[in-house]
């Protein structure tokens, strides 16, 4: 094509320097480029250490100032019970069971919630039928479902998974629906005049366009799944990290309370990191 195209074409690449830069130059450049991130990491570590130090001081001196730190375990005591716990198969079983419940409950919520949201977003009648019911059930906290869940399901295990499912289901459904409602109609029209039919439009436009919101729903849903799981385990469980934490209180093993709490925090963080990672894999076009 003639010169006009070349004019609008790619900007010529910057010519590389004749000699490769030395290691020192590279390191310096890397440092400059990542300065902000390094700074944030450094401050983050310092802040966590400061938190531990404050915790240590408050518990060592058993501070009582409105809040009572008399019985609160010190970080060292928690660490001691941690080293003991990781060799205890029972503690590991608590963790494994909680993770399994999350996995099953959350997966079911995603498997039901995402397609249902997509279909509701596309077919008005389905939306009109299901949406009112969903809106009535949605504000009920998963914990309020505990007695009902125990009646509904034959085993404790099933009712806990059910509550985990409920907790994550609504955020996933609502966000998927939201994503569907924001799909740019121009993209749908573009697909149509490239010959796409209903099914292709669903797969090639509606679904990928909704993915960012679906992943928001999955992230929120995962958070609520943990909240619901821990509550259910504390009330009706026999195993699980929530039960472990509650049992530690009943058995006056105070360091284990903090250990259970930290374990829950770490597991929750880990699962949301997993979802974020999956999001980046599935949506390579999104800036990280």
């Amino acid at each position: 094509m003639p010169a006009a195209i070349a004019e609008a074409g790619p900007v010529p690449a910057v010519t590389p320097p004749a000699t490769p830069p030395s290691f020192g130059t590279l390191a310096l450049r890397w440092y400059r480029l990542n300065q902000d991130r390094l700074r944030a990491t450094a401050i983050g570590i310092i802040s966590l250490l400061a938190f531990l130090l404050v915790w240590h001081l408050l518990t060592t001196y058993r501070v009582v100032f409105f809040v009572r730190f008399t019985n609160v375990p010190s970080p060292l005591a928690v660490y001691a019970s941690f080293t003991k716990a990781i060799h205890d198969p029972k503690f590991l079983l608590h963790i494994v069971l909680s993770c399994r419940r999350i996995f099953i409950g959350f997966s079911l919520a995603a498997i039901v919630g995402v397609p249902l949201g997509l279909i509701m977003g596309r077919f008005k009648l389905v939306h009109e039928i299901i949406f009112p019911v969903a809106e009535v059930l949605r504000p009920i906290p998963a914990i309020a479902w505990v007695p009902m869940a125990i009646m509904l399901w034959p085993t404790n295990e099933q009712s806990i998974v059910f509550i985990t499912f409920l907790g994550s289901f609504f955020p996933i459904l609502v966000n998927t629906l939201h994503g569907m409602s924001l799909v740019d109609p121009v993209l749908v029209r573009a697909a149509q005049c490239l010959g796409a039919r209903e099914r292709s439009i669903f797969r090639e436009v509606y679904f990928p366009a909704s993915l960012p919101h679906i992943f928001t729903g999955l992230t929120v849903g995962m958070g609520v799944a943990w909240v619901s799981l821990i509550a259910a385990e504390m009330i009706s469980g026999q195993y699980g990290i929530g039960y472990f934490t509650w049992e530690a209180y009943s058995l006056v093993q105070y360091p284990d309370i903090a250990l259970g709490m930290i374990a829950i925090g770490v597991l929750g963080l880990g699962s949301s990191v997993l979802i974020r990672g999956a999001g980046h894999l599935v949506m390579p076009w999104r800036p990280t």
Binding site: L187, A190, A191, C193, L194, S200, E204, P208, W285
Partner: peptide, 29 residues
Amino acid sequence: SAERGMVFQQYSLFPWKTVRENVEFGLKM
């Protein structure tokens, strides 16, 4: 229909497809 190609003011490229995948779309359909 694909018989009548259309270009929109708002570009309307599929953000989740690379440049080549965008161009391929009609042929894929």
